[in-house]
Write a protein that binds this DNA or RNA. Structure first.
Lengths: 340, 340
DNA sequence: TATTAGCACTCGCCTTAGGAGAGTGCTAAC
DNA sequence: GTTAGCACTCTCCTAAGGCGAGTGCTAATA
């Protein structure tokens, strides 16, 4: 990018200041707060250039400048310095994430709370995908004449639960034999591997009713292929009310209503799947309600083939440095606690 | 209450009007809209009386009147006429609540959505208490060397799940024998009945380790005695943003932050336990953030000993008639669908 | 050529003032 | 007991003026 050193300094200063104050930044305040060794007039010229290049915007003629989406983008790509977390924060994280969790759901819920507590943004955590989970054991619990409850335990001791509607008239024996067969043939495989097998061929081996077999397998593998909408966990939805850019009720409503739409949120987050840490700034987001927000996403792993995504949603004037540090910290901590 | 007929009419008119318009009601508009056969001046006198008696308030000297909490209370106790739901609404309810639910959790979640969709208020649904649930079957699924997963099936086919931390060194046999014993001795009892038994005596019968027995029973019965905070399901939290009284960001924040505090919400709702339908108006609510809200609560039964509470939270200027009709309708519908 | 000081100008925000509108309370008449 | 008439009060809306922050331009300077 053709930005000389001083332009980079000025852009950095403006982004940095604006992130803290939420007020347009003027040339004088930059020359006061940052030691650039030039006068406000010179800075004004630089600002004027930066505006023409699309990195800055002016709310109105006689106001200071604020970063444009492109300005933030440049900041994030080239200027940012990710600080390290304090020892305090790290221990806090470990404490909250490790305090004898009982299920993946609890971990994930706690993660949402943690993220929102350590920022003033809204945390979004998607429930983990199970397709990489390695099955260790399956138990079929009869619930009624038309339903059984399938409890799967993964290698790492996390649970996959499914309620299965079965054809009526299935007796306890066929259930038992199906269960035994499932445990013999599927143990040690991930759901994806199971999916990849030739189920029709397997089915022939089976003695139990075809209907029963099919419905159970369908249900067990249901989440693997179709890019299903799973559970969405939120933390700190009210945090955005503290952001000055959301002192407008219409904006607040747009965002809060969006956050209630699990399907949309899931989709927006899932787009970042497999890309590590992603940052979407303002209009880079597809959803119109998010055009004034930035979304930072990352992947978490619960060690056991359970992979999911989490993210932080805030105004474009987000504290990228800190959020990125936090995201990295969370990933590392989860790895330490539940790692492979 | 010493309110003559005309005063009741005037109070009714004011409450009715104010619920619809959210604007202070003047004497002239009453005499126009309602056929009381008297002039505005007369109505003014009545209003003045009603204000002195504490049923009305005046936002400022030259505005119309609005109902006070006490005014709403009188309206709710003595003036209200609960309309019946339209056929459309009833079928809509049945459809949403019956569409092959898989678990109590799903029903309850759906209930929250339904309630908020049919009103412009926020729905609060507490997860069902399990103490009245009749146990039919228990299955113990080993998860790791330190954990087992307890799956209980109730008489009506709903699930009680628990993760139990067990002492290490428990072998499969003692698990199996414990499971068998649990099924023999506890099937057909409610959790409360189980709790009431002399567990120490029972324990003597058991061959398996005492530690194991104790931890499993503790976990199974944990929710019965301690007035535990269960899951809180919300629907339509953004609905309050549409209420004119919440066009103020501070109030919005207060309410939304309160709604994130499951423990407080649970407590506020649970106070109405066992009282059928309750209505708390404005300052009748203990929570300060709810002083300008009304909360209507009722009990739902999922047929199977699973009893819980649900409610609707809105401004004191709530459409009590409609909400009460809806609450009744929901109770009836649930009874029809999952009734005893 | 790059930088700087000086200065007029712009625009949002705050305060103030005035007028319109809605509704009351009081008084006197019915 | 009820009503018409009327002065009064208070909010809301709009316009006007002053303040402050910040810019863009010009001309002088290193």
């Amino acid at each position: 990018m053709g930005l000389d050193k001083r332009k980079r300094q000025v852009l950095y200063a403006i982004v940095h200041d604006y992130i803290q104050t939420a007020e347009p930044v003027g040339s004088r305040s930059i020359s006061r707060r940052y030691e650039l060794g030039v006068s406000p007039a010179t800075i004004r010229n630089e600002m004027s250039d930066l505006e023409e290049m699309g990195f800055l915007e002016q709310p109105h003629t006689s106001a200071g400048r604020i970063p444009s989406d492109r300005g933030y983008r440049f900041y994030v790509d080239s200027l940012l310095r990710v600080p390290s977390l304090t020892v305090k924060e790290v221990t806090f994280m470990k404490q909250l994430l490790s305090s004898r969790m009982r299920s993946a759901e609890e971990i994930v819920q706690q993660l949402a709370k943690l993220l929102s507590a350590l920022t003033s943004y809204t945390a979004i955590v998607l429930g983990p995908s199970e397709s990489q989970a390695k099955l260790r054991q399956v138990q079929l619990v009869p619930v009624s004449s038309r339903q059984i409850y399938l409890v799967g335990v993964t290698d790492g001791g996390l649970l996959l639960n499914r309620m299965v509607e079965i054809p009526s008239g299935v007796d306890a024996e066929s259930l038992a034999s199906l269960q035994q067969w499932l445990n013999q043939r599927l143990a040690g495989l991930t759901l994806e591997q199971i999916k990849a097998q030739d189920l029709l061929a397997l089915q022939d081996e089976m003695q139990a009713g075809i209907d029963l077999f099919e419905t159970v397998m369908d249900e067990l593998l249901g989440s693997v292929n179709q890019q299903e909408v799973g559970k969405v966990y939120l933390g700190g939805t009210t945090n955005i009310l503290n952001q000055p850019e959301f002192h407008d009720l219409h904006k607040v409503r747009a965002i809060l209503e969006l956050l209630e739409e699990d399907a949309l949120i899931w989709e927006a987050m899932a787009q970042a799947a497999g890309k590590g840490v992603t940052i979407s700034i303002g209009a880079e987001n597809a959803l119109s309600a998010m055009q004034e927000c930035s979304l930072i996403t990352a992947e978490y792993r619960l060690g056991d083939g359970l992979i999911g995504h989490f993210g932080l949603l805030g105004p474009t004037r987000m504290n990228y440095d800190r959020v990125l540090a936090l995201v990295q910290g969370v990933c590392e901590t989860l790895n330490q606690l539940y790692g492979l």
